[in-house]
Structure formats: C-alpha cells, structure tokens
Design a binder for these strands. Structure first.
Lengths: 140, 140
DNA sequence: TATTGTTATACTCTATAACTATA
DNA sequence: TATAGTTATAGAGTATAACAATA
C-alpha cells in the first residue's frame, strides 16, 4: 500500500496537529473544558480587563465566534464582565475561574512536555523554531 | 498585552497547522476540491483498486466519514467503483479524476514548497523530522 | 465612519451509535 | 464473530453577512 502523503511535510504537520489536539482535548475533558476555552481563560488570566475583540486578535478567533464562547464561560461563572464604555467590556476571571485556570495550566504544561518528549532531542529546537516561523509568517 | 500561549510549542503547532490548512484550502478551491478530498484522490491515484476502509486507515478517516466523502467523489465522476466481493469495492480514478489529481498535485507541490520556504533553512530538517515524529508517535 | 458585540447561518472535519449484508 | 459500507446525528471550530449601539 503506497502512502503518497508521507512525503509531504505539510500533511505531516496536519496529522501531527490533529493528533496532538485530540490528545489535549481528552486531557482537558476531565475539567469539562475545550482547548479553545482553555486558551481564552489563560489569556484572560494573563490580561485582566481584556476585551473580547482583543482576545480574538491574540488567538485569531473571529469576533462572531468569540461571542458565544465568552457567553458560555460567563454563564459558568468563570469570567466576570465589567463595562469599559458603551460597547466594550473588560473580562476577568472569577474566583472559580482562577482556580480552574490553574488546573488547566497544569494539564497544558504536562501535555506540552509530553509533546516535546515525543520528538527526538536532536530535532526539538528545529521543530519549535519551525512551527513558530510558520505561525508568524503565515498567520500574517 | 501578554500572550501566555506564545511559550507553548503545542499551541504554535496548532496555529501553524490551522494557517497552513486555510492556505491549502484556498489554493484548492479553484478546483472545487477540499483538502480531505484531495488527499483521498491522491491515495486512490497511487493505489488503484484500494477500498474505502483501506483509505481510511491510511488517512485516519473513520469509515462513517469515508462513506459520504467517497460518494461525493463518485457522484462527480472522479472515482469509479468495482465490486471486489459482496461487501468491498475497489476504487480507481476515472479519466476526469486522473486529470484532476494531476492539477491537485501541482497545487499541493507548490503549497508544500512555499510552506518549507517560510521556515528558515537552518530549522527545516528539524521541523520535518519533528512533525514526522509526532505524526508517527501520536497517531498510534 | 469605524468599532464592539451580537445573532443567524453555513461549512468542514470529526465522533459515536446503530444498522445491513457479507465473510 | 468480525468486517465493509452505510445512515443518522452530534459536536467543535471556523467563516460570512447583517444588525444595533456606540465611539
């Protein structure tokens, strides 16, 4: 059986990312949190008072998709909203959100460590530099 | 504005893959073909007579999701089906499918070249080895 | 005019369960 | 019993268009 995709690094990138995301999702499932929600909570934790549109710019999530996402976290009492002006609202974690984000960070850190552990040490630095270069160069 | 995700290679992997896939999808759109469809056509081209479940194993696509995918390509007269036994059917490209897959390969090759070009030469080998290692180690 | 947030909607890919018919 | 293909359905993430309220 020939695998014509094997020769394409871009296809390997896709498969590596899909496998890694599936693993992260299953790790986070014990907290009933999805990867995208986890990243939003981590960004709010690092930037108290940040707005939805600012989060969207950092994480490349369209404003239209940030709305239900933020609303879900708000309804779970993980984030609080405070009006900045008539159209913006600053987000910050609630107490429960802070507790949760610390658990999330533990899981993410373990996941990231295992991910790097799967890459032969000799290629680790190149891998990290490579995905960072693609992220920066291709997210425009 | 702090970006707490920047330090995580796994997050960079996700963003790099998402950006690359968006680019590939837009490149392939001129042929009205999606990335997943393109990979199926390339696998059938390389393995005439292959079955749906074999394609699914190669590309990690569940049988349930292969059915509508294959049916779509069949309805577009890009693939032909020939019964192997009562439950399997061998797939091969039609004439039109063969013409299309050659156009797909041109686009994919150009896309892959540009992807590698975005990675500094010094990190290219490490990147490729890294995504391959993750693909192999984590797709189990 | 541009921006923030929102709603509605659709698309792509993936995941699970259940069913048939065959081996 | 196990396998190939199918159907139905749901979920996650993303994309576009349109709108109201505000700056």
């Amino acid at each position: 059986m020939k695998d014509p995709m094997m020769r394409y690094p871009g296809y390997a990138l896709r498969r590596a990312s899909a496998a890694a995301m599936a693993r992260l999702a299953s790790d986070l499932a014990v907290l009933s949190v999805r990867p995208t929600e986890a990243s939003v909570l981590m960004v709010v934790d690092a930037n108290p008072g940040i707005t939805q549109s600012e989060i969207g710019k950092l994480l490349d999530i369209a404003r239209a998709n940030m709305a239900p996402l933020a609303s879900r976290l708000h309804k779970r009492h993980l984030m609080a909203r405070a009006r900045i002006d008539g159209r913006s609202q600053g987000l910050r974690l609630t107490e429960a959100g802070g507790v949760l984000v610390r658990r999330i960070e533990k899981i993410v850190t373990a996941y990231e460590a295992e991910l790097l552990a799967r890459i032969p040490a000799a290629h680790r630095a190149g891998f990290v530099a490579g995905v960072r270069a693609l992220w920066g160069a291709w997210s425009q």
